[in-house]
Design a protein around this nucleic acid. Structure first.
Length: 824
RNA sequence: GCGGCCGUGGCGGAACUGGUAGACGCGCCAGCCUUAGGAGCUGGUGGGGUUUCCCCGUGUGGGUUCGAGUCCCUCCGGCCGCACCA
């Protein structure tokens, strides 16, 4: 094996890649000058969780796609910063450590080391000088600092709340981590409810802005839509129903226009007023129902197919519109977490209320008459908006939409309502009763209450703990370490205790992109000047599985830091693109299915460049594709062909190439540039292949293959365009074409339109919309001439015959359509 | 149930704002070269037919249009998200 990376003149990926990995490291090719960069471009990829299994194909697909983008931008003249880090805290790591009976503090560094090796092997343009690891005290010190900023801003609050509890993880989960009522990590385990005192971030305060900004963010539509749905804005009204004794019960409704049809009210079983309202004869029944509801796990409770149940409280209240008395019930189809935890029930115009009213014999009063009174719309419940109010006093005859404001304003005059907007988004519970995370920096003192840890005392180090196993208690393992949690109160110096919960991993990842540029600074979370220079992130590419978790939290944290004056950007990611998923045999890869593709074997067999290019070629990047290894040889054959062309070329030649090959070159420059820019990597690669086929055909025509007939000037742009996809390979070719500097320090080839123009084009001739012939004509032919020539063509005359041409359609440089015959 | 995405050769997939369907690649077939080749090269490859030409063809059925893979409606199938959100 020779130094130049070739063996007997053949392409030897292993040698080439080894050589360029070393060269890049020595020359610091991939290190960005974060302080001095003139044209900064922040190219971000989602940092991985360093699992024990190592990188899988999905990771490689994601990273390579992002890397191609970063390298492309660099060739376009940007100073690209492409950092990486490790999301190493969290339940994933901890559970795995428990399984293999190791300590995460021991396991994680090993995993990270393995990941580093694998990432380097992939030929990513990563700047290793700015690596972060969330488990590093130098990092989580600032995670804790961010908590304190939110605390001081009143955005971190302690609430006792129904939380999702996974009996398997033995911890609380965020709503976002509950899938179909099951734990996201334990699909077989039902999540139950617990009432615990937890720390919450008040993300709901930001719901409106998080939603509004989605309108202008340059993000994948699918991601924006998922966030929009997750935030779940509903316009309606908050109405007040009063009991005899004057107690006000507030309800949220999107249909205040139907208030005249509210024939009963339903409170959530957890509603704080239930106790005081319930009459003595109903008390036993109500208490029994509440106990039952509390014991019911969240799935059964939430699944809509369950038959509705409920019980009367015996109490009544007044419908503010009709003045009539209506009964108050409790039922578990009303959720405490949404709206006010109470509803006015309008059975005639709501399916759930209808079902409930039918079952319990409650009054159903129609107050909206459908105006499009056709088919089934006359049946109750009618939930549409195309109706007129009836039995609604002075509002009779009014349209639903109009009535929403009219009725609400009328009630407002009686202090019984106002227009209101509700969001589906819940506050973010960040408390985790686990070990492997950053301790929440709070101290509880009997005298002073909740005392935040002073910033000067950060970080609150996670203590070494041999037995970090979680238990049923709902209390973190850290609570077993008295030595650690017993501390003097920072304010009064009396005995106090630390918060023993740690924070959610999603808090770590909600700000890691702010840290990257500033990793050299230990006295601040992120440097103001560097942050202004690099944020917002220019391009963020990642999986849509994080559309509502990570991406929402990161936006929220950035927005808060912006409001507090720490970050200039309000939004962290100017552009986000969701990549697709790689499936195997049509199914998602998973350990249980046993269809996980491990990238290492392919990289070892084919080389990183071939593997990278294959992944980018197998389908549209933003849609993903099916991994089947048969196709990989096609990429290798392609690289071998390029290798052959480059090997035969005369470095430094001044020969330009034929007009035809120049034309093909510039057409390729145009196409590949546009495709790469829009992440259409598969078609970009196909255009490169096409160009290589043209060059080879030309070489074959001009003489013997291998005679160096293809001018270097036609190959250099090819090598540059190939570089984002196959970086080691391109560097080697670039060097063999006589260049000393890195191919990545050159420029993307300039497109010249005049050179790309075809002189002759093929004009399609249709008769009545069917293709009947093709004509070679010069580009830019006039409409009149095109039609004349089409009519003159023999093949066309057969179809036109003696019929009159009724109409002609001309698409410049494309086709002529002659419409003949018919009745006119 | 609601919302979104998607159905194109044997396979992965092309087709810009409606304008030559099947680019590019895999596989397959034939030929060349070779002691040999799961190597390389050349050509072919949607289906059918009366084979210098014609017919059919982008999940189904309709519609708009000179012209529909692309736009509209119906149904079927697959994937993803949300799921009693008032």
């Amino acid at each position: 094996m020779s130094q130049t990376g070739s063996t007997n003149g053949r392409y030897d990926p292993e040698a080439v890649e080894k050589k360029w990995r070393q060269t890049w490291a020595e020359r610091r090719t991939n290190a960005a000058d974060v302080e001095a960069a003139a044209k900064p471009y922040y190219n971000l990829m989602m940092y991985p969780y360093p699992s024990a299994e190592g990188l899988h194909v999905g990771n490689v697909f994601a990273f390579v796609g992002s890397d191609v983008h970063g390298r492309f931008r660099r060739l376009q003249g940007w100073n690209v910063f492409e950092p990486i880090g490790f999301d190493a805290f969290g339940i994933h790591s901890e559970n795995y450590a428990l399984k293999v009976n190791m300590h995460p503090a021991e396991l994680i560094p090993r995993n990270i080391e393995r990941f580093r090796e694998q990432l380097k092997r992939c030929g990513l343009m990563l700047d290793w000088d700015h690596e972060v690891s969330t488990t590093d005290p130098r990092y989580y010190k600032w995670t804790q600092w961010i908590f304190l900023q939110l605390y001081h801003a009143g955005l971190a609050v302690r609430k006792k709340a129904a939380v999702n509890w996974c009996p398997e993880c033995k911890t609380v989960l965020a709503n976002e981590q509950v899938i179909d009522g099951h734990c996201e990590r334990h699909p077989g385990t039902l999540v139950t409810q617990r009432y615990l005192e937890q720390w919450f971030f008040r993300i709901t305060e930001y719901a409106g802005r998080l939603l509004e900004n989605l309108e202008w963010l340059d993000w994948s539509d699918s991601t924006r839509l998922m966030q929009t749905n997750w935030i779940g804005r509903s316009e309606g009204a908050e109405l007040v129903f009063r009991t005899e004794s004057g107690t006000a019960i507030r309800v949220f409704t999107t249909r205040p226009d139907t208030v005249f049809g509210a024939t009963y009210m339903v409170l959530s079983p957890e509603h704080p007023l239930v106790n005081s309202l319930t009459t003595s004869n109903q008390r036993d029944a109500v208490n029994a129902y509440r106990r039952e509801a509390a014991a019911t796990d969240i799935v059964t409770r939430r699944i809509g197919e369950k038959e509705k149940t409920g019980v009367s409280t015996g109490a009544i209240c007044r419908n503010p519109a009709t003045g009539e008395s209506i009964p108050i019930w409790i039922a578990d189809y009303v959720l405490m977490e949404y709206g006010t935890g109470a509803i006015m029930a309008v059975p005639a115009h709501d399916e759930r209320d209808f079902e409930f009213a039918e079952k319990y014999g409650l009054e159903i009063r129609q107050v909206v008459k459908p105006t499009d009174a056709d088919e089934a719309s006359s049946e109750l419940p009618y939930t549409g908006w195309n109706g007129q109010l009836v039995s609604s006093a002075q509002f009779d005859g009014m349209g639903c939409h109009e009535a929403v404001t009219a009725v609400t304003e009328w009630l407002e005059q009686q202090e019984a309502g106002r227009l209101e907007v509700q969001y589906r988004l819940h506050d973010w519970c960040i408390s985790r009763q686990r070990y492997w995370g950053p301790p929440i920096p709070v101290i509880y003192c009997d005298e002073c209450g909740v005392v935040p840890v002073p910033e000067t005392d950060l970080p609150v180090l996670l203590p070494p703990l041999d037995d970090f196993r979680p238990d049923e208690s709902g209390i973190s393992p850290l609570a077993r370490n008295e030595e650690w949690f017993r501390v003097p109160c920072p304010t009064c110096q009396r005995d106090a205790r630390r918060e023993t919960d740690v924070s959610d991993t999603f808090l770590d990842s909600a700000w890691y992109f702010l840290r990257y540029p500033s990793t050299d600074y230990d006295d601040r979370a992120f440097d103001a000047k560097l942050t202004r220079k690099w944020l917002p992130v220019n391009s963020y590419i990642g999986g849509n599985e994080h559309a509502v978790l990570h991406l929402m939290y990161a936006r929220f944290i950035t927005m808060v830091l912006h409001d507090l004056g720490f970050v200039e950007a309000e939004e962290p990611f100017a552009q986000f693109r969701a990549h697709g998923t790689i499936v195997k045999d049509g199914a998602k890869m998973s350990k249980s299915r046993g269809n996980v593709v491990v990238p290492d074997q392919y990289i070892a067999q084919w080389g990183a460049d071939t593997f990278r290019m294959y992944l980018m070629f197998l389908g549209p990047y933003q849609e993903g594709g099916d991994f089947r290894d048969e196709g990989i040889s096609g990429i290798r054959r392609f690289l071998d062909k390029v290798w052959g062309l480059v090997s035969d070329a005369r470095p430094g030649g001044t020969e330009e190439g034929s007009p035809d090959s120049l034309r093909k070159l510039h057409q390729t420059i145009w196409g590949v540039g546009a495709d790469t820019d829009e992440l259409r990597y598969n078609t970009a690669i196909s255009k490169l292949m096409k160009y290589v086929n043209v060059l080879r055909k030309e070489e074959g025509q001009q003489g013997q293959r291998g005679q160096g007939r293809v001018p270097a000037k036609l190959l250099e742009p090819l090598v540059i365009m190939l570089a984002p996809f196959a970086p080691h390979f391109a560097e080697e070719c670039w060097e063999r074409l006589g260049h000393i500097d890195s191919v990545f320090d050159t420029e993307w080839p300039a497109f010249e339109e005049s050179l790309a123009q075809e002189e002759l084009i093929e004009l399609v001739v249709q008769v009545n919309g069917k293709v009947r012939g093709r004509l070679q004509v010069s580009a830019g032919i006039s409409e009149a001439e095109a039609i004349e020539r089409a009519l003159a063509a023999e093949a066309i005359q057969r179809f036109v015959g003696s019929s009159a041409v009724r109409k002609t359609v001309y698409v410049p440089n494309r086709l002529v359509n002659l419409v003949v015959g018919g009745e006119g």
